[in-house]
Design a protein around this nucleic acid. Structure first.
Length: 192
DNA sequence: CTCTGGATTAGCT
DNA sequence: GCTAATCCAGAGC
């Protein structure tokens, strides 16, 4: 995807990322997953957003221009993958919560959930601050050709998108905002 | 400096 | 259903 794709409101980007291919290169290995669940985190006016109270050492990647990667460690154990949206200095982002593994195959318990998919794709804070638009390591696309085989993104229609409250933000003011998006009936959604 | 708790998950009751 | 795992941001002193 180009920069214009990410340089929009996070709730728009979160919705349009559904069905797209998340591609991870590790040396000669390549992993591909279809994005099936996302959440939007607005900037200042969203108490659930890490950057709602300003820039810190942890969240500074969120202030970079759209298309940068924000990875953070949660509960001391799990990494979460976000794509920065909107223009520079507006700290909004989209959290990738679940993917459907296309290459190689994997089962639900390996990739469903923000902490599991980063483990499967070996995503950690080394990727924090990278720019997806020109990174060979981790990026998102509509299609990819591997050994002559073409894998294409799913075209997700509005009627097959479910919108709910975000997961895991129970104790904050903006917990009821409808900013979680997922593909209806997909088997890799983290929670119903 | 200390203390609390989190955009989670695995494992146990 | 409950809790431990384990790092670190943010608040308070």
């Amino acid at each position: 995807m180009n920069q214009d794709f990410y340089n929009r409101k996070p709730e728009i980007v979160a919705r349009e990322l559904l069905g797209k291919l998340l591609i991870r290169n590790i040396g000669k290995k390549i992993l591909v997953g279809k994005i099936v669940e996302t959440e939007a985190y607005l900037s200042k006016n969203d108490s659930a957003c890490h950057a709602s109270k300003g820039k810190t050492n942890r969240n500074k990647a969120m202030f970079l221009p759209a298309g940068h990667i924000y990875v953070y460690l949660i509960y001391g154990i799990h990494h979460c993958l976000n794509i920065v949206t909107e223009k520079e200095s507006v700290p909004s982002a989209v959290l990738i919560r679940a993917i459907e593994p296309l290459l190689p195959m994997a089962d639900k318990k390996t990739v469903s959930g923000p902490g599991r998919l980063t483990k499967w794709m070996k995503i950690d804070k080394n990727l924090n601050g990278e720019y997806m638009i020109d990174s060979p390591n981790l990026y998102i696309d509509d299609k990819i050709v591997i050994c002559g085989n073409t894998i294409t993104a799913e075209r997700v229609t509005a009627r097959s998108i479910i919108i709910t409250k975000r997961i895991g933000v129970e104790n904050c003011q903006d917990r009821d905002k409808l900013l979680r998006f997922y593909i209806k009936d997909n088997q890799f959604i983290s929670k119903i």
